[in-house]
Design a protein around this nucleic acid. Structure first.
Lengths: 197, 197
DNA sequence: TATATTTACGAACACTTGTTCGTAAACTGA
DNA sequence: TCAGTTTACGAACAAGTGTTCGTAAATATA
């Protein structure tokens, strides 16, 4: 009867993807569902045919990424028990993930505080667990004499800081040179940094 | 006539201090003026006897810190023109400021995106200027053969990442060991990092 | 084809947001 | 003491928030 213009239907995935981009640009709180709707090409209320709530989007982004990192770490832990190469692999893991999906990672890094309870506590728990496993590798490396004898806690935080920053310069460096970045950071972190030649 | 219970009057400074703490904990957008009011011990409307707007608070926090860093950098630039010691001083500058006022620095680092125009553009401009001056020091160091010949852009971003993370572990490390942190990070950044002995 | 399920919509709701206004109290300086 | 200024308050406002609901169209299933 009416002209049958087939409206391009929208997938759940698209919503999460666009949400990640908006959350990255403006932050979770500053992004409205109406904004997300127009970005996706829907009316606000239509979003709720796909998702339960705004929080659900944030939770999915955060915990999906958490899962990826945990799985990656498990692989590394099961590999050769060599702290130096393990650390290098962990660097690679973070840089790769930041390259693959920068906006999602940014939300994971910066917006997890906006999680409601009980998700927030659960997330922090995962994070703590992940970090303590990194700490273990660092301590092992120190004990084995392969890492310098520095405060492992501070070492850990330094490394995490660098990794939390990777997504920033995935964008600011022109080409898609994840490999280049990996090389430079490894050079800085492992081989020694600036000084000398 | 009535019982003269003197209401403890509130200073502008207190408002900015408490705001920084709240903005740090929950983010700028997630912090309401009503929340800030009760934290300060006032009713909402009373806040506006002291400040013009919520944005003004954020602007002041961001630009005050920017000014501090710029002034600090100027001092360093005017000092001995030795890239290695200059970098060390810059590390010290960031660590000191993060130790002195962690919440303010956190807002400066993480919440500046919530600035409205035209403050946002102005802030980004300041930041760009600051970073390009750091880049210059790095490039000088490379040219003089005192830094390794690595992509200075990536070097810069790595260093900035570390500094953006400092405020996190000022809290998580027990004692107030800014000096200890300075030593470890310098060791990592300048002398060489993990490997070897 | 007819039926059931998924997706899209407009309107509305209850609530929170930052901010303003008029006014009264508290303080300051003479 | 009195005038003038600063500070605090309650009430209210307009705008924006996430979300719900009933319904209709589109798609899938049979």
């Amino acid at each position: 009867m009416t002209t049958a213009i087939s409206k391009a239907r929208v997938s759940k995935e698209l919503i999460f993807r666009e949400a990640a981009i908006l959350f990255q640009r403006k932050g979770y709180q500053a992004t409205s569902m109406r904004e997300l709707a127009t970005q996706v090409g829907l009316e606000v209320s239509s979003l709720y045919s796909h998702i339960r709530s705004k929080q659900e989007i944030l939770e999915r982004i955060c915990f999906d990424n958490a899962e990826q990192f945990i799985k990656g770490l498990e692989q590394i832990e099961l590999g050769i028990c060599n702290p130096a190469s393990q650390m290098q692999d962990i660097l690679g893991l973070h840089i790769d993930r930041a390259s693959i999906d920068p906006s999602s990672i940014t939300v994971f890094n910066d917006e997890w505080r906006q999680l409601d309870e009980p998700a927030l506590t659960r997330f922090i728990q995962l994070r703590k667990n992940y970090e303590s496993r990194l700490l273990f590798i660092l301590e092992s490396g120190i004990e084995q004499g392969v890492f310098k004898r520095l405060d492992p806690q501070i070492l850990l935080l330094t490394i995490l800081s660098i990794m939390r920053g990777v997504h920033h310069w995935v964008k600011s460096t022109k080409s898609d040179k994840a490999e280049e970045i990996k090389k430079v950071i490894s050079a800085i972190m492992l081989d020694g940094l600036l000084f000398g030649k």
